[in-house]
């Protein structure tokens, strides 16, 4: 067991974890943040994607102990208790989700991409090569991210207004 301290969605947690515990299991089972999903545990499907110190990474390919001293953002941390982000709104407008299982991982990867500038459509498609969605055929997801990219999206790590 190793003691770790992790800031998740702005909240500090100190927990003792088994060294082999995956970050996904830590987030879901220890912290109750079940928005981060597990789809393959070998890095292909992308639904476990979270941001580690701002960078989108596969949650299933990180050990919880590796996050010691880091900041983690999960899908729950995007809008917090405030209104949906522009990206989330774009997903809703474009019907870019059906079952919604792959959605959190895609949102986290896309927020990271958008924080680095305005991606081209090809860059969005390329980003999505790392995410399996079996419901939508991807086109509405590309449309949603493209629309969010075109809008004036505030950097994801800036605080957002509380409430409505």
């Amino acid at each position: 067991m190793t003691e770790i301290e992790v800031v998740v969605n702005g909240q500090r947690h100190r927990e003792a974890v088994e060294d082999r515990l995956l970050l996904t299991d830590f987030l879901r089972q220890r912290l109750g943040l079940t928005g981060t999903h597990v789809g393959c545990e070998h890095g292909v499907c992308g639904c476990c994607t979270v941001r580690l110190d701002g960078v989108a990474v596969r949650g299933c390919l990180l050990l919880a102990v590796q996050a010691d001293g880091c900041e983690v953002q999960t899908v729950e941390g995007l809008a917090g208790s405030g209104p949906l982000t522009a990206l989330q709104e774009a997903f809703r407008r474009h019907f870019a989700l059906q079952c919604g299982f792959c959605t959190p991982g895609i949102l986290m990867a896309a927020e990271d991409l958008l924080s680095r500038g305005t991606p081209t459509r090809d860059e969005i498609v390329d980003l999505l090569s790392g995410h399996l969605c079996r419901c939508t055929g991807y086109a509405p997801i590309v449309d949603a991210i493209e629309e969010a990219a075109a809008g004036a999206l505030p950097p994801a790590d800036e605080p957002r207004p509380e409430g409505t």
Binding site: G43, G46, L52, V55, V57, R58, D112, L113, G130, H131
Partner: peptide, 9 residues
Amino acid sequence: VGHVVTRNR
């Protein structure tokens, strides 16, 4: 090499 997200790490 892999995908954007795996190259991040």
